[in-house]
Design a protein around this nucleic acid. Structure first.
Length: 585
RNA sequence: GCGCCUGUAGCUCAGUUGGAUAGAGUACCUGGCUACGAACCAGGCGGUCGGGCGUUCGAAUCGCUCCAGGCGCGCCA
């Protein structure tokens, strides 16, 4: 509809230029908005205001000129000039009401568009280290990423969702060591657990599984392990201590045994994460292993390309990438003096790999604490000769949990956190998914557990779901009262829907495809949340103002068509957010 | 110290890329169920848009500056 108005405005300008009333070199960027106020019609344009200076006319005079040259249109009821020079358009009611037929025909397909047709997007989100279960902070990234992916699919993009598995590196070694030490405890050893080890209960579970399968085969006495170890905190350095424990573990265990412990831990946690996300309604097309980048040679290849193009140098025994040449604060290490490549190297290889797979756009969703990382990744892409503009990094601020009005401290390492699984079980997947995407991603979020767990109607999700359930309820009442719904008959009489509340609801419905388009292109699912609330509000208001099951068959069927259309749109929108649309509550 | 994010009603948040009188929810107050679900509806109260200066027909939105809060500044991942 917006496009239709843009088109007639273009035609009007062209006419003015042809007949000489406007300069021929005038260039216009036509902007058509929804009128904020019903008094201002359905759509409005500020064209006359933006163009006044270039046209050397007063805004209102220019507006009159444009309106006088507007071509006839079947959809426009009337046009008005208002305020300082806004042009307001009123759409005729038949055109508006035709959306009901469209919705009833397309049903779950209504709202889908082809904006991104033929384009491929890769989107990576969550990607938490597999060193423990997901916590509520990851939940926000999961809910947000999945909603963005759904929106992008809805507007025609081919979307590929990925979870990057950090299955290499120091953190994983610390996990392996933690598992092994717990295993030794099960073998009967008694010793102080490292300050820097993973202390969560899940580590005990993994160790127990390991012990069940392997008995005491990997046992070594604490006396053997602890000789020549540096001091742990508080007397010593906890980082150096845990590294020494890992080294000792590698020295004492056969390499196969070490990787067994490592893999048991990794797979246990990955299975857990996968299961958790699946119950959260989040599914991936691919779980991309960091180790596979080393195995495939991609890491080496990326390093070579950076070196050959002259963006690297050696200093203090390490290989550095001159990222400061591309806007980063300082240069970064690619290969450490001990010969190990850094996490950054893998990440460069991963992003190179993504772009080489031919995506038009690559989206990363990271926790906001990683924001300092963005410039160096873009720098690397630029140095590799790729287009850094193809990468969008969306930063999700952390959700801070509150209980009894108090902030809950969280740390993965200490094992002190509220897990996503716990949240899901307390308040349900629907409420959690909805709550997470209610706010803009860059907005800090206070997640009040008491409120969320209270299942009160303060959660607007219930308001929206209730609208859906109410429509369903009307139809069960209809049957109880011995009426039948004739959709074709109703559609033939939608011109009878002339009540203000009906027009408001219809207008709201017509905007749905546009909302999806905008929310998708801007990666902002919260726009859909707000739309759905407004839509539900229009429905509830209508519900309270008029009865649907009336004796007049024409009006009854027409109204039933309208509320069915509303039900479809609510269900479609909630589905994109990963929230169910129950028929009863 | 430098960089990024945030600051809008008592509280939680929107604000259509610079437009018309800044909006919702919640809290509080007043009304509405013997016809489709009151998890609802109607009305009221509530604002120096963190402060200041600037850009212009026009600023919550853009620029500069200050204030407050969060996060980040490793040969960790």
């Amino acid at each position: 509809m917006k496009d239709a108005i843009t088109t007639v405005l273009q035609q009007a300008l062209a006419r003015c230029q042809e007949n000489g009333s406007l300069p021929a070199d005038l260039e216009a960027r036509i902007q058509v908005d929804h009128a904020r106020d019903k008094q201002h019609g359905d759509f409005a344009t500020n064209l006359a205001l933006t163009l006044a200076k270039a046209a050397r006319l007063k805004p209102r005079e220019l507006a009159e000129l444009i309106v006088a040259n507007l071509p006839d249109s079947a959809v426009i009821e009337k046009v008005e000039i208002a305020g300082p020079g806004f042009i307001n358009f009123y759409i005729n009611s038949e055109t508006q009401a035709s959306v009901i037929g469209s919705i009833l025909n397309q049903q779950e397909k209504f709202g889908l568009t082809e904006i991104g047709a033929g384009k491929k997007i890769q989107i990576e989100f969550v990607s938490a280290n597999p060193t423990g279960p997901l916590h509520v902070g990851h939940g926000r990234g999961a809910a947000y990423g999945a909603a963005v992916a759904n929106l992008l699919k809805a507007i025609g993009y081919e979307v590929h969702c990925e979870y990057y598995v950090n299955d290499a590196g120091r953190q994983m070694n610390i996990l392996a060591a933690s598992v092994w030490l717990r295993y030794l405890e099960l073998c009967g050893e008694d010793f102080p657990f490292p300050v820097n080890g993973y202390k969560g209960d899940y580590v005990l579970d993994i160790a127990a599984a390991l012990h069940r399968e392997n008995g005491d085969k990997m046992f070594h006495s604490w006396a053997e392990i602890s000789c020549n170890l540096p001091k742990d905190e508080p007397e010593g350095d906890k980082e150096r201590y845990i590294d020494a424990v890992i080294e000792k573990m590698k020295a004492l265990l056969h390499p196969d045994q070490y990787s067994l412990v490592f893999d048991v831990g990794l797979n246990y946690i990955l299975d857990d994460i996968r299961d958790d996300l699946e119950h959260f309604g989040v599914v991936y097309d691919q779980w991309f292993s960091e180790r596979s980048l080393t195995d495939s040679g991609d890491v080496t290849l990326a390093l070579e390309r950076l070196q050959k193009s002259g963006h690297c140098y050696e200093k203090d025994g390490a290989i550095w990438f001159r990222s400061s040449e591309f806007g980063d604060e300082k240069d970064r290490v690619l290969v450490r003096d001990n010969g190990q490549s850094t996490y950054f190297s893998s990440d460069i290889a991963y992003h190179m790999n993504k772009l080489e797979r031919g995506y038009d756009r690559v989206i990363d969703i990271w926790g906001a604490d990683h924001h300092g990382y963005v410039p160096r990744v873009k720098a690397a892409l630029q140095a590799l000769g790729d287009d850094p503009e193809k990468l969008d990094v969306l930063l999700v601020q952390f959700a801070v949990l509150y209980r009894n009005g108090k902030k809950i401290p969280m740390s993965t390492r200490s094992g002190q956190f509220v897990t996503l699984r716990h949240l899901r079980k307390e308040i349900g997947s629907d409420a959690a998914r909805f709550f997470y995407v209610m706010r803009k991603c860059e907005q800090h979020m206070d997640f009040d557990l008491d409120l969320a767990m209270s299942q009160s109607n303060e959660n607007p999700m219930y308001y929206i779901q209730y609208a859906h359930a109410r429509v369903c309820s009307v139809f069960s009442q209809l049957a109880d009262k011995g009426f039948e719904f004739d959709q074709g008959h109703g559609l033939a009489h939608v011109d009878l829907l002339t009540e203000t509340h009906e027009n408001d609801l219809i207008t709201r419905l017509t905007r749905y495809p546009e909302v999806i388009g905008k929310a998708g292109q801007q990666y902002e699912p919260h726009q859909l949340v707000h739309y759905l609330r407004d839509l539900a509000n229009a429905f509830h208001t209508y519900y309270n103002a008029h009865h649907f099951i009336v004796d007049d068959k024409k009006i009854r069927d027409a109204r039933l068509c309208l509320i069915t259309a509303a039900r479809h749109v609510i269900a479609n929108g909630l589905k994109l957010l990963g929230v169910s649309a129950p028929e009863k509550m």
